[in-house]
């Protein structure tokens, strides 16, 4: 069995790559492999915007990531600087930047690029989407 780290670089809506990443992650876990973390970088951080509100009959990718976390306890980590630039903030960044609102919450977390690097170091294989 192997350990993957999955990097998601694309927006959840308007680009199919995030869905591909989710399907890959699900299949890897179902096959008995482990995932160190799913790391959201570049436009991938938009996956973690809690305000994403697809219509009720559409696939909710954010919810799918959350369910994957609930089932397998995999970490879902944002690059904080990529997130801030794209308007994705947790309560902590909202406080630091003196804004009234935030749109990212657990199980998604904020981290630095260092977490991507250390994840790559610990994993057998990096897959970017």
């Amino acid at each position: 069995m192997s350990k993957f780290i999955i990097q998601v670089n694309s927006a959840p809506y308007g680009n199919g790559a995030s869905f591909n990443a989710y399907q890959f992650a699900k299949a890897a876990l179902a096959s008995g492999h482990t995932i160190d973390k799913v790391f959201f970088y570049q436009d991938g951080v938009l996956n973690t915007n809690h305000l994403n509100s697809p219509a009720s009959d559409e696939f909710d990718l954010k919810q799918a990531w959350i369910e994957l976390h609930q089932q397998y306890n995999i970490a879902l980590v944002n690059c904080v600087s990529a997130a801030l630039r794209r308007g994705v903030l947790s309560e902590v960044e909202a406080g630091e930047n003196q804004v009234q609102h935030w749109n990212m919450q657990p199980p998604f977390t904020m981290g630095g690029l260092g977490e991507l690097v250390s994840g790559i170091e610990k994993s057998d294989k990096l897959i970017c989407f």
Binding site: F24, H33, K125
Partner: peptide
């Protein structure tokens, strides 16, 4: 290939370049 075959392929090769 389906996704589980994709996972297996990714492990068969030394690395994946996206």
């Amino acid at each position: 290939v389906n996704y589980s075959e994709f996972v297996a392929l990714s492990l068969k090769y030394d690395k994946v370049i996206s």
